[in-house]
Nucleic acid binder design. Sequence first.
DNA 1: TGTGATATACCTACTAGTAGGTAGGCAACA
DNA 2: TGTTGCCTACCTACTAGTAGGTATATCACA
Lengths: 195, 195
Amino acid sequence: MDKPSNTADDILAAARRFIVAGGYNGFSYADIAEVVGIRKASIHHHFPSKVDLVQTLVRRYLEEAVTGMTELERNVPEPPELLRTYAGFWAQCIEDASRPFCVCALLASELPVLPPEVAAGVRAYFQFLSGWLTGVIERGAAQGTLTIAAAPRVEAEAFMATVHGAMLSARAYGDVLTFGMILAPTLQKLIPATD
Amino acid sequence: MDKPSNTADDILAAARRFIVAGGYNGFSYADIAEVVGIRKASIHHHFPSKVDLVQTLVRRYLEEAVTGMTELERNVPEPPELLRTYAGFWAQCIEDASRPFCVCALLASELPVLPPEVAAGVRAYFQFLSGWLTGVIERGAAQGTLTIAAAPRVEAEAFMATVHGAMLSARAYGDVLTFGMILAPTLQKLIPATD
DNA sequence: TGTGATATACCTACTAGTAGGTAGGCAACA
DNA sequence: TGTTGCCTACCTACTAGTAGGTATATCACA
């Protein structure tokens, strides 16, 4: 677990913050060096190139998502509550400004100018997330705990799109409550009323 | 109408393509100079700084949206058809790759690192679009031609978020049909079945 | 009708600063 | 003793932007 040094983790954490703020071309090794408190050249010791750094970041981001979702499904088995928890996670991240945007959603927006290795990682994340949501929605529909109007895959893609678009709007308006406001009716349409 | 020279328009068109591909930091004056066929310094003659250039681009983008929506509402008066046409416009833009992303949606993702003048323009675009959609949905709900589960403003924000998120997914998957696939059930939920 | 003033649109050649990246050294430590 | 982690010092390529020039077009007016 402690194979990568603390500095490497610090570099990755700084890179994540910079990417979340302004994308792949929105930061430099000099920016990272400053916040981590080392020299530019020392970053190259841990990550020979910028591509290596961001590739590692995206790979870990996907790994964390996979373990996070697995963990989540163990603790929260019901599909409606899974969707609510997933949306609530991002609502919290945005509200407390700890992670105001999804790394891969941001990188996806600049996909055409991304190094191919990074682009592939971003695509993998989208495929995983969409697959996971499809599974959850499929299960909910079969159980009758979710109401869907289209195929589970399509509903999953629509849900994911709304989540990403809501992040964008929250950022555009500079209003952290926008995300929750948008997700509320989206969840409501999927979850049958219990009145 | 011919106040700005052809070259200035060419520069703006090139900048738009570059921004749509990779955002504010994803292109340089050198990139534009190459595709327009002039020298870097000549771009500075038309747009003294990069901020001037992108600011002008965003301002015009909003102006075009305003006139486009006004025109649209004159030709297509019914709210359901307005939403369908708006979504269809973007579906077409993405499918024929003519405008595979909204300039302001892309810029919004990197808002924290944008020059303040540009950021303000992006915010204005979001406010206009959200306001227009709110009006359309409000009217549709009053007429009974649209079915809404939340306040018109909330439904409008959710719709806009889904459109932007669907652009992102289409880009992430590299599949131009993803956008239409996502928007179909979204429209379906707002437009009552006519069976 | 010719002449001068002004403006437009572009050019070459340059600046300071920043980008990612490299070479080689030094100290701590297993 | 070799490896790890970081350093100074440097590189080349590129960034936005500037200085100063030229060719051409337009207009005012004698």
